[in-house]
């Protein structure tokens, strides 16, 4: 197959149903988002629209999805339309009863955010005392309920040297996947970037080590969702998708229905309550530009541009204002 294959609609959608949250995370991208929430009726219509467009899966995010009272009504409806349903949660509100309900009402996978194997470090980062303990218990409830689990860890100053410990922690807690998310400079992540983000050299060192651990670890999938790892001669994704998957396989929908290429790119390309998803997917000039990024600056001299396509588009926009600029995390030197 050719590498420029574009599916007729997104395969997956990250969907914020609420911006409400019971946590105070230092890197939150949605805390200051004033967007309204859609009603159950409006969301149900949007979910139908998405399913009709052929989308395969939706991942509920936010905000903390469990704060939405009709969450499992929505998941059950989405699941009944053939969508694979998952979510990212901080786990604080999960007990065994809720875990069983999630399983019964359509959730196939739940990711729990845990940023350190050390409880105190996680609690400080997330702003809530006792949150680590609750997150670990949530994983146990979900596993016992038969839901596939993952841990989502935002890599930053507090944990970038703890790859082995985080991996051991994930294995100990029986998760299927450990997702090392690269730090995005969006929302509070932008405000706090000077204290939380790593230097490009530190990112390079982190990925070298993380790839070593990934390759030797059995019984756990370690995911590194950062296109700049192509610089190390490897990639986490199928060779069919170069660079970031945002706008090529996935889209993001905000609480008010606004569609953006990803949760960290604040460029609205339509609204799911009024626009046709497949049309936006095919005709959006923003997506077109993201799919055909041009090498600029040091990218013009790097032999890996065809694989990484300049790295994370969200970071380039947040820190330079131009998606074609090199990812500021990239450690390549001319």
């Amino acid at each position: 197959m050719k590498n420029d294959f574009l599916p007729g609609s997104p395969l997956t959608i990250n969907w914020a149903f609420t911006n409400k949250c019971n946590f105070k995370c230092s890197h939150c991208y949605s805390r200051n988002d004033p967007s309204d929430e859609l009603s159950f009726e409006a969301l149900s219509k949007c979910i139908e629209h998405v399913a009709d467009a052929g989308v395969l899966s939706i991942n509920f995010g936010g905000g903390e999805p469990l704060l939405r009272k009709d969450l499992t009504d929505l998941s059950e409806y989405a699941s009944s339309l053939g969508l694979r349903v998952s979510m990212n949660s901080n786990g604080y509100l999960l007990d065994m009863e809720k875990a069983v309900e999630l399983k019964r009402r359509g959730f196939s996978k739940v990711g729990i955010s845990i940023d350190s194997h050390v409880a105190g470090i996680h609690d400080d980062f997330r702003g809530i005392s006792g949150s680590h303990e609750r997150a670990v218990r949530a994983l146990s409830f979900l596993n016992d309920a038969g839901i596939e689990t993952s841990i989502s860890t935002v890599i930053c100053r507090i944990n970038h040297k703890d790859i082995d410990a985080l991996t051991g922690f994930a294995l100990q807690n029986r998760v299927r996947q450990l997702n090392f998310h690269n730090f995005k400079c969006s929302g509070l992540g932008y405000s706090n970037k000077d204290t939380l983000d790593l230097s490009s050299e530190e990112w390079g060192e982190f990925y070298r080590r993380a790839l070593e651990v990934r390759d030797k670890t059995k019984g756990l999938e370690i995911s590194l969702d950062d296109p700049i790892i192509a610089l190390l001669g490897t990639s986490n994704k199928s060779s069919m998708v170069k660079g970031s998957i945002c706008g090529k396989l996935s889209l993001n929908i905000k609480t008010n229905g606004d569609i953006t290429p990803c949760g960290f790119i604040p460029i609205v390309i339509g609204n799911i309550t009024r626009d046709n998803l497949k049309e936006i997917w095919k005709t959006s000039p923003v997506l077109e530009k993201m799919r055909h990024k041009k090498a600029t600056g040091k990218c013009t001299e790097c032999g890996r541009f065809d694989d990484c396509l300049g790295g994370c588009t969200a970071r380039a926009i947040a820190l330079t204002g131009d998606m074609n600029n090199p990812d500021p995390h990239c450690w390549y030197q001319k």
């Binding site: 197959m1 294959f5 599916p7 395969l11 997956t12 395969l56 899966s57 996947q177 999938e221 995911s223 969702d225 986490n236 994704k237 199928s238 069919m240 998708v241 998957i245 396989l249």
Partner: peptide
């Protein structure tokens, strides 16, 4: 298209 674990294959 086949889609699993963030990877896409096209047949």
């Amino acid at each position: 298209v086949l889609y699993s674990g963030g990877e896409m294959l096209s047949l």
